[in-house]
């Protein structure tokens, strides 16, 4: 008995010190787990790690017909080209503006919606409203942009009909063909689709606030509006801060779908994002190296921003993402 205890403690010690032989021996003992993990490792390696090798294209003048060894290496020339290209600087601007609008305006609307929904006392009504509010989140952007295009149509679109009948405008507005309005249309579509979903987490945070706080405030003569400002809003502050920081890390991911689907030649100056740029100037015109460089720029900046955001969240004493 005593000896077996002794050996097992020795085993643990040597495995902790990272003995290679010991690891192999343990792996032999855990071979059924090993057999299960091999396909997973191979799969993830092939589909997530081997494409990283393709990033070498950003430093070449890649021609599809040649082998890797025949490619011409050009160093940072593709990146130089990228940053002197007006179109690229424009898509960076578009990406940042549209994701910032979605982040800030979208969050503000979601919080207001959560605050108002929280004031509904009838639980059944509240639940029905909430469920319906996040239904659009589960529909594809194709469906949503289809609905948006129908509704904003100059030809009997409901929004234009409504504006005309109220006399706000005297001729239909070409919502999808007006560069000045495009960002607002994207933002509006985003708000329609995601407000309900984004408000879920704030409603959960609100329901976590102690009811005693409200009772105490009521005793002191606070009205509902004051309760909202002085108790509910501070109560969801930490949720707000952490979500803001995390989403700032993803700011270059303005998406692709909605801009691609709603965009057209007239508004392309304001509608194209980095992802559309990669697609349009990469795959469509065989400029593979140039587009890879653009995609790589986006990935590298995103990783840096996410790491910083994660660090900031940790500093603020919030739960880290990784």
């Amino acid at each position: 008995m005593a000896t077996s205890n002794h050996t097992s403690s020795v085993v643990r010690k040597s495995s902790a010190s990272g003995g290679f032989k010991e690891t192999i021996r343990l792996l032999g003992k855990q071979r059924s787990l090993l057999f299960m993990s091999i396909p997973v490792i191979v799969y993830v390696f092939i589909f997530n790690y081997t494409p990283l090798w393709g990033l070498t294209m950003a430093f070449q003048n890649f021609k599809p017909g040649k082998t890797f060894w025949q490619q011409e290496w050009v160093g940072l020339k593709q990146f130089e080209r990228l940053f002197t290209d007006q179109r690229f600087l424009r898509v960076i601007r578009n990406t940042i503006v549209m994701s910032s609008m979605n982040l800030f305006i979208g969050t503000a609307v979601a919080i207001i919606f959560a605050l108002l929904l929280n004031e509904i006392k009838h639980t059944g009504y509240k639940r029905v409203v909430q469920s319906i509010s996040y239904l659009p989140h589960f529909l594809s952007w194709i469906i949503v942009t289809g609905l948006v295009a129908n509704f904003l149509s100059t030809d009997d679109g409901i929004v234009n009909n409504f504006l005309l009948s109220l006399g706000i405008v005297d001729k239909p507005i070409l919502f999808l063909g007006e560069p000045k309005l495009f960002w607002w249309v994207v933002n509006g579509a985003h708000i329609w689709k995601e407000t309900g979903w984004n408000s879920i987490i704030y409603l959960a945070a609100i329901s976590g606030i102690s009811p005693e706080l409200y009772e105490a405030a009521y005793m002191d003569g606070a009205n509902r509006f004051q309760n909202m400002i002085y108790i509910t809003l501070p109560g969801i502050k930490s949720t707000f801060v952490i979500l803001m920081i995390m989403n700032l890390g993803f700011i270059l991911n303005a998406g692709f779908e909605v801009q691609y689907l709603l965009g057209n030649g007239i508004v392309s100056d304001v509608s194209e994002t980095i992802d559309i740029f990669v697609l349009k100037y990469g795959i469509a015109s065989n400029n593979f190296s140039f587009a890879t460089a653009a995609g790589m720029f986006k990935s590298v900046v995103s990783i840096i921003m996410i790491t910083v955001a994660n660090f900031a969240a940790g500093k603020l004493g919030e739960e880290k993402l990784f």
């Binding site: 092939i46 589909f47 997530n48 081997t50 494409p51 990283l52 090798w53 393709g54 990033l55 294209m57 992802d275 990669v278 697609l279 990469g282 795959i283 593979f288 587009a291 890879t292 995609g295 790589m296 986006k298 990935s299 995103s302 990783i303 996410i306 990784f322």
Partner: peptide
């Protein structure tokens, strides 16, 4: 978090 992007994916 790490993503090679569309074009390397296409070639794979």
């Amino acid at each position: 978090y790490v993503n090679a992007g569309l074009i390397p994916q296409y070639f794979l």
